[in-house]
Design a protein around this nucleic acid. Structure first.
Lengths: 210, 210, 210, 210
DNA sequence: TATTAATCGAGACGGTACGTCTCGTCTTTTT
DNA sequence: AAAAAGACGAGACGTACCGTCTCGATTAATA
């Protein structure tokens, strides 16, 4: 049978949602496919949360084949991790109030607001949950995201040490206490914006009499 | 027809695993069924972890009908919560070393060992994860289990306050820092028994120079 | 313990639908219970058809216990049979047109209308279907309902024989042909009111040239 | 990676009963799966009758996933219809005795024997029953199977008309009487082999004095 | 009059099927 | 070689009925 050139015209490069079709680009990873998959996954996650996040639905929305997804993200957790990492991290500019306790207060309020009010923030809970069942998720969480996102926090404590507010050796001891406090609050859904509550924690950690 | 006392004997009380049958005891919940289901669920959880924990399998093992399970535990999370609550809590006797930092050191080491080495401990991670997707699980975790299991911890801090090691008002501020630290370590799988590591945390919280 | 007359007042004889309760009347079958069950079954059948006809729902509606139903109607088919038999049979007065073919025409049209337009009529299909899986239903259908309801039909043929239209010995041969024709039409859902169509059959059976 | 011809061998074509697995053959319906499912359904139907015919059991026996079944047979009735249509139709050679009445006698006796003695025959009752609850089954029965299987019957009457035994216009009037008679007997379980009984019907229909 | 026996509503029980959902693998066809 | 497409086995999900079995209350018939 002869090649039918009109069929090629019928094939569109974009999403399949509206009937279009993303053709293969040959023996190379298709950036379009990757993009479409990540977009679909992101949107799905934002719309229906982690419980509604399924590979089947991502494939449907992305107009992608499931094997295409599994080829690049061996497991559901891997895709989830990538989606999470592609999210715009919290627009959290580390505050410069001149005192550790007030820095912590400002930063924590912003962080909790982000966790509460953005899909990406809410997804973080799911990532922690996923990490309890999936080693890749755990590794990604612990070794990839945390170090990156903790830079700002570390910066605050380092500055405080530079100002002489706390001893420099204390920084690595205080960090996990601060992180843990926030996680504990997040995971028990106690991250309402309560400045007094946060202030107490901040002053306790900063060693400032209240 | 005469009463036949032997009929009561004809009714098998126990599991259906080997073909026996647990008869109804009337229009009231059967303690035997409940027991069998919780036992099966507990065993399944210990054997295969939370990911292998399914209502179907619990029903199979318990020799129970699935509707019987759903009648009493409307959701999988509810059963899981009940199973967890039936678990023997950590046999953690709060230490009495005479100093907060060493109390914390001893208690934390024991707690981490429990988390590491017992199925029940490992299940706690799953409960926290489940709580991120299920409101009942969250409520149970936050309002039912935590208050109960935190008594010992609170006791340690109260004793320290009584000894004058820390200010009494500081106790409710220090508690979430301590809990959060432990959760953070558990959830990132960093609960190896490292006495030095734990000591640092303990001294930081206790305000004792190291 | 003394008899408490006030308790008897608390017990209402009627349906449980609105919270009332039908107490036992002693070691005899309760006509009220039977009535309530048959009523509920009849209503359910009319409302939801045979596929929606379940013992559970009948018990619910009747405010009866399931064992009460099973005590008197050992199987679902038995209850169904009773319900069917309690239905008012078709108000089919055998016509007296003076000729077999026109008697058959009139009777068949009325029968098909009954089958089409009344719940009871529609239920007859279900009874035939049920009879294919349940021996009691088969026996009831064949030996209980058919003889009864065929009286009118037989009467028409007998009259025709008396008038000399057909030979008397032919009656038992023609009957099953007539019945079978109607069943075939009913079971293949071909019982629209088509006078011509029916006339052809009637004339064929009556031996009248068309 | 080189093509590994042995891989094709690694894929078991047959049933999964013993742990083997029927691999996908791409984005097209798998004839093997279809075959296995129909085989299993046929066997199950023969073994346990229609009441024992369940999708779950078919899936189990076929080593197929339930969704695979539901993908191709949206409803239980659809699968049943397909199974029935795959059954070998009755090996009923239309007799050529030279007279309608004796043709009918021979044919009817063979038909009843088939209905009595073969699973497929017994299944026909279930199909008629199913058709009373399921429109697809009704349509399939009326418009698919009947026209096909009535060819032989029609042939007998046509031949009789050709021989001048009956008027040609009478054929379509006699057919439903003959079919209906057989159905009526089948559905009331009155298809014992009674030559005299059948002869009477045959002579009545053929218009032959007995 | 006290006991016995059968009835009642209620509803739990084990079991099984239903039809849907998702997982991760596999294969064909197209580029 | 990689893509889209989608079929596949597996099996969990939660619901609906089935028919059985107690329960505790109630009442007629029996002793």
């Amino acid at each position: 049978m002869k090649r039918d050139p009109s069929r090629a015209q019928a094939i569109e490069p974009a999403s399949t949602r509206d009937g279009h079709r993303r053709a293969s680009i040959g023996a190379r990873r298709s950036p379009q496919a990757e993009e479409a998959i990540l977009d679909a996954a992101r949107a799905l996650l934002a719309e229906r949360g982690y419980s509604g996040f399924s590979i089947d639905e991502v494939a449907r929305r992305a107009g992608a084949g499931k094997p295409t997804i599994y080829r690049w993200w061996p497991t559901k957790a891997d895709l989830f991790i990538d989606v999470y990492s592609a999210e715009k991290s919290a627009a959290l500019v580390p505050p410069e109030t001149g005192a550790l306790w007030s820095d912590l207060l400002a930063y924590t309020r912003a962080l909790w607001a982000f966790w509460r009010d953005t899909p990406s923030g809410r997804t973080f809970r799911a990532l922690i949950a996923e990490a309890q069942a999936s080693t890749p998720a755990l590794v990604a969480l612990r070794d990839k995201f945390l170090p990156e996102r903790l830079k700002d926090v570390r910066h605050m404590f380092d500055e405080a040490a530079a100002r002489g507010e706390i001893r420099p050796e204390a920084v690595p001891h205080l960090l996990p206490l601060y992180i843990g406090f926030n996680w504990y609050r997040l995971l028990t859904d106690q991250i309402a914006d309560d400045p007094e509550d946060i202030t107490i924690m901040a002053r306790t950690l900063a060693g400032t009499p209240q």
